[in-house]
Design a binder for these strands. Structure first.
Lengths: 213, 213, 213, 213
DNA sequence: CAATAAACGAGACGGTACGTCCCGTCTTCAG
DNA sequence: CTGAAGACGGGACGTACCGTCTCGTTTATTG
């Protein structure tokens, strides 16, 4: 995504957008081939091996075409990742806040470890550090929807009275996801379901003994 | 650090290591100049602008000299960051676990935001994603001591009976630091003392209402 | 010109050619606009800056239209130059071969220096070196008429007995025009009327002292 | 040549130039390989097919190295041509101006047609039209010495009283070489020894009948 | 006090990828 | 059927860094 130069969202063909749609329409083949090849390279060789020339060659597409629609290789990588993670994020609704959060945490952990998206996403986050545009796009197109899903879960929990008072949702979500990405990026400890569950248990219960007890 | 090729640790002077040490000794001037310039570039222009050529030119040092002592530009950056963060990490000991943890969290947040090390460290973490050696070094030379300090604090708290039972220290430390680095790297929400305190409050108390209450 | 793909010659209107002429007729506006813009770019920025995209954009014409009627940017340039040099080449006829030749030489020099066609023509000649089709067209549409005019002048002179015996007209014409284009293309010495006159004087009289005198 | 960035002339190694000669010395292998490959491409495929990438690939040299020493592909081509035409230009000295000039003209014609340098030189002259730097270099490194040789011949002839009075050497040289390059570049008539001889005959004798006779 | 040997500055080297530019072709829709 | 719009594959351009190398030049220790 990130600064699509002409099209506002994903679909390349559109046609039926209000405007006139003059000139040769964007090639769906090229669009798909680019993302496919990018995804393949990301999964096979990692973000570091992703090259605009390689994408172009592999997709049978000219570099000019890539740069016409994406500003960066990071921009392509973002679209590739987003397309690969089919964007359906099921918001769990088991009736129990605890269970909903656990499910969500497991979903994230699984996506980052059981699929091959983990390194790609880590690569994108790395890119953010030297390319603010990528940060913008990542937050907008990837993070936001995930956070909103978490917000929904928390909101439901609060309405059922399961949540402690005075919890800041932003802080809560960061304390759920933060440690997961911390392990993804730093690699100092394994990232797996066991960790997700232990983390959740601890977050729910709190670290300290209740002073009133 | 990371795989110093000849020298075991930081100091460049050597001389009095067991072996003979013939030939011209390592230049302290060059060593210092490299790290100074690297630090300066990191602080002024960020990790993306850090270039071995730029360091060499700025330090009046040849590239060969840099590569003789550091394996990578990431390696230089690491040493620069470590040298800049004076490695003394005071382990707080107020007698209260809660206060110790808060102090530690504030120390980290301040280091990442009040000094100019934040972007440099973020850049290093980015580098890890495509350079495993950097990861090794980062965990070894930077992370470990911080985590051990946190372990010490937690241990003292447990001995005083302030800590809930069954807390996994690794998970606990990740839940303290993870969210901080998450905000540093993603930039979706501000990273400041206020966040540190809110985070700590939430971690101590837990998210959910006590089922037994 | 050069290989007009559909139209035999310059005029774009067609319509009244024998055939039926179905569909939308060729746009005179487009035809004129292309040549005007090409001429303008050639005169303002030189041959190197001439770009099919620039012509299309400047003329409000599509590239496809340009390529439908011209084979090349060189082809466009040629037409532009030919159109700009109004093709009437007056053949001087003063009654004196010497004066006729001088007038002709001055005409060429003026056209190449006093107007802005010099660089455009130099650019075309440059193009010939890597594009034989341009050479063909240049000789056919530009050179030939000029040479024939010179032939006419020489023929008249010969009939009046002013010309030495055994003069090869082709060689003679090359010795008149060659040095002029040599200076145009190489730029080692100024190209001006003074040069034209000196050249002519020398050619008429010969370099060497008459052995019989 | 054209703007050699460090070395004033051809030889890359030098070593014994007055200055210090610090750093790794220029690679003679690279220097030679570049010019050899460039010459080969020029002779085999012509100037239009000359590509910096192709030279780099063929010579086993990086593009950076080429651009370090030559500003342009035109610059490389120039050096290649100059190196190929071993710069020894024998100045004929037969005792007869007429014969000397004829020899010189034949030398030029042969060089342009019997060897494969003709197209390369034509390509360079084409390049001049859009690259003034090339013009400068061409005049300086190629033209000048040739013209000076012709001047020498003319000067000797004048001293022997073979030359008409009032001959401008610059004009005379242009009238000798101009027509040759005219045919080389325009291709409207064959360029061969026969033409050279006919041209010289005509130049020596003059076009017009002697009015005094 | 010479010989030796390592480290130094300078900077050229082979590579790889970048992002831009232009070419000539194509594909759509409007007149 | 022409024309404007403009996307497309192709391919060269010139730049920027990387990490390695080859010099001549210090600067110690050793014999």
């Amino acid at each position: 995504m990130a600064e699509r130069k002409t099209q506002p969202k994903s679909e390349p063909t559109s046609s039926v957008n209000g405007a006139a749609s003059r000139g040769r329409p964007r090639s769906m083949r090229a669009w798909k081939a680019v993302l496919d090849v990018a995804t393949e390279i990301l999964e096979r060789d990692g973000y570091g091996a992703l090259t605009v020339d390689a994408i172009a060659a592999g997709a049978g597409v000219s570099k000019a075409t890539i740069y016409r629609w994406w500003s960066d290789k990071a921009d392509v990588a973002m679209d590739a990742v987003l397309a690969a993670i089919e964007s359906e994020i099921p918001v769990p609704d088991t009736g129990s806040l605890r269970k909903d959060l656990e499910q969500q945490l497991i979903n994230v952990v699984d996506m980052l470890t059981k699929t091959s998206h983990g390194p790609a996403i880590a690569g994108l986050i790395a890119e953010i550090q030297s390319n603010e545009r990528v940060g913008e796009a990542f937050r907008e197109n990837f993070l936001r929807s995930r956070r909103e899903a978490a917000f929904t879960v928390l909101r439901r929990g609060r309405e059922r009275g399961e949540l402690n008072k005075g919890i800041d949702f932003d802080v809560a979500v960061d304390s759920l996801y933060g440690p997961v990405y911390y392990r993804l990026l730093l690699g100092h400890q394994p990232l797996d379901r066991k960790f997700g569950k232990a983390l959740l248990a601890q977050l729910c219960r709190g670290l300290l003994v209740d002073p009133k007890a």
